[in-house]
Amino acid sequence: MAKQTHDLSLLSLLVFLNLFAIFTVIEGSSVKKKLFVFGDSYVDTGNFLNSPAFKPPYGDTFPGAPAGRFCDGRVLSDYIAASLVKIESPVAYEQRKSANQSVIENGMNFAHGGTGVFQTMVDGPNVTTQIDKFQQLLQQNVFTKQDLQSSIALLNAASNDFSTFLLKNGSTSDLPAFAESLVNQISVDLERIHRLGVNKIAVGLVAPLGCLPLLSVSSSHQNCSDEANKLANYHNNLLLKKVKDLNNNSQSSSGDPVFITLDLYNAFLNTITTLQKQHAENPRMMNPLEPCCVGVNGGECGSVDKKGEKQYKVCEKAEESIFWDNVHPSQNGWLAVSTALQSSFQQQLSI
């Protein structure tokens, strides 16, 4: 009888071990997707400390107070996380130490407003430095290899590089060569993220720069600047070709393309064109090329004078605007763009 009891105990142990192995496989196959974000203010959710994004009226729409987003509310990375990856927006790197583990499980945002692919700020981390920070967290085992295999990276940068180049050089003659060097460096950055273990990486095409209020003001916000949009198109065509080359040399374990592009250019331009037609028919609608938050008395959005008086004014209906300030889309603008991108994003990433 004692031997039979021993045999039953052994059998029970084997069954338990088999069940545990099955459970482990199931658990491993359903690892929560994470999003890792690199780039500039279009995707920064709070890394540029002491910036205007931490002052009113930024954040008025969401979360209701300044939170470090260069917008009245959510930015592109927020919508990529919520609508396309189906997770909560990952925590900003600079705020990681105060975040609980459940937030870390969504990934991390390394993007920093004002930065670029190259060095566009004295002390702001460019994309290379942002990836350095990501690699350091991997070396510290904050994220595992399995985390990366089931995750997505988003890289959006280049606009600040062009503006910095023009400010320094004052000439457009060398822009084509600069655009090529920019795209080559983006390629290096994308490959590096892939080598670190991320198998699905999205890179944003440059938005129609000529439609930014900063440039459309020359036509009283009636038209986009054709020259600036041609520059954006030139850059985007180079990047599309580079991504195609990268995919020809890289394959994920599933056989799907590793690298995809987010067509911010056409998503924005189509939205603006549609709203311009509606505005022409109904002038009471907000002009899509006008910013919602504008500077007054020599100020800019978010600035105050020595007495603390506002040097800006905000439109009555931010929810109808496409641009929040002179260079940043509003939450409504980002919602329209992310909605336009949703189908192609999910198809290309097979999610």
Rank of each mutant, 00 (worst) to 15 (best):
K145L: 10
G308N: 07
G124I: 01
L166S: 14
K317W: 11
G68R: 03
K241Y: 06
K133A: 14
I104Y: 14
E180L: 12
S343W: 03
N109C: 05
S216R: 07
T271C: 01
S151M: 06
Q331K: 04
T271R: 00
N100E: 13
L76E: 08
S321C: 05
A228W: 12
A21Y: 12
A177P: 00
G299L: 04
T45K: 03
L196N: 06
P213G: 07
L239H: 04
L148S: 04
I322L: 09
A111V: 01
L214G: 06
N199V: 13
S344W: 00
K310A: 12
L239N: 05
E88F: 08
D263C: 02
L10R: 15
S51D: 12
S30N: 15
L8A: 09
G113Y: 00
K168D: 09
P125S: 06
Q331D: 13
G308I: 09
A177I: 07
V75K: 04
V127E: 03
V206E: 05
L13H: 07
S338H: 04
D263H: 00
V37D: 01
R284M: 12
K200Y: 05
A81G: 07
T271Y: 02
E27T: 09
D263N: 03
I186N: 02
K32F: 11
N237V: 08
A82Y: 08
T172N: 10
K317R: 14
L166N: 11
G114M: 05
N100T: 15
V206N: 06
V75S: 04
H235M: 07
S250N: 15
D263W: 01
G46H: 06
G73H: 06
S41E: 02
S89H: 06
Q342A: 10
S343T: 08
G299S: 02
V25D: 09
M285S: 15
V25C: 11
Q136P: 06
I193W: 03
E316A: 15
D132I: 08
S29D: 13
G46V: 02
S225K: 08
N109H: 04
L341R: 00
